[in-house]
């Protein structure tokens, strides 16, 4: 029965990871932009979402946004995905920004000496190295996002935890087994991500000139 929740847990994870990384790159690059307004605006987004709780953001999107703007954010599935993606996008944008800044200054100078344009320097030299630095942290955050998907049960999504709660309330004495199973389910989902993260750590050790 718990397995029925897998679809929701996995689909929410994949979608929020996709959008989370997307937001992270957009916001991370915007914070390095020369445009002050763009920089301030993304800085505001990042601080708001890093400064408050995911669960508060989730409830806010779920309850308050429809009241405030009179719009529904599509389904609850989308509310969950957007909340997780916005939250982790904010955290990971700091990694994007930090990694780009951490690429050694000599790399930019060497690229300049070869007469590359600003865009070419970014695309051919800085970015490929920065991404390698981001990988391990991105892996870690993937596991964090998996854990975060359990919150969508609170807004009525039928994920693993939701079915766990149903099972528990139908047979209280089985609660330990049920929740242990739920935990094991999550752990099995996390295992490949754990190994992926270790793999990424190996990759990132090669091919980077950091300061």
């Amino acid at each position: 029965m718990l397995a029925q929740g897998l679809t929701i847990t996995i689909s929410v994870l994949i979608a929020s990871a996709f959008f989370g990384y997307l937001f992270a790159f957009i916001a991370g690059l915007c914070r390095l932009s020369k445009n002050v307004i763009l920089r301030k605006f993304t800085g505001f987004y990042v601080e708001i979402f890093r400064g408050t709780s995911l669960i508060v953001q989730l409830f806010w999107l779920y309850y308050a946004v429809p009241m405030l703007f009179g719009i529904e954010l599509g389904s609850n599935w989308w509310v969950g995905v957007i909340a997780i993606a916005l939250n982790y996008g904010a955290y990971m944008s700091e990694i994007v920004r930090g990694s780009i800044l951490a690429v050694a200054k000599g790399q930019t100078e060497a690229a300049t000496a070869l007469n590359m344009s600003r865009f070419q320097r970014m695309r051919l030299v800085i970015f490929p190295q920065a991404v390698r630095m981001m990988l391990p942290e991105f892996g870690n955050y993937l596991i964090q996002m998996l854990k975060a998907t359990s919150l969508v049960s609170l807004i009525g999504m039928h994920d693993i935890l939701y079915y766990g709660d149903i099972l528990r309330s139908s047979n209280l004495s089985q609660a330990p087994t049920v929740y242990l199973l739920v935990l094991v389910f999550y752990f099995i989902l996390a295992l490949p991500l754990i190994f992926l993260t270790r793999k990424m750590e190996d990759i990132s050790k090669k091919g980077v000139a950091s300061q």
Partner: peptide, 10 residues
């Protein structure tokens, strides 16, 4: 690597 929410429920 498992959700604190589930651990709380446990």
């Amino acid at each position: 690597s498992t959700p604190p929410l589930v651990q709380l429920f446990f």
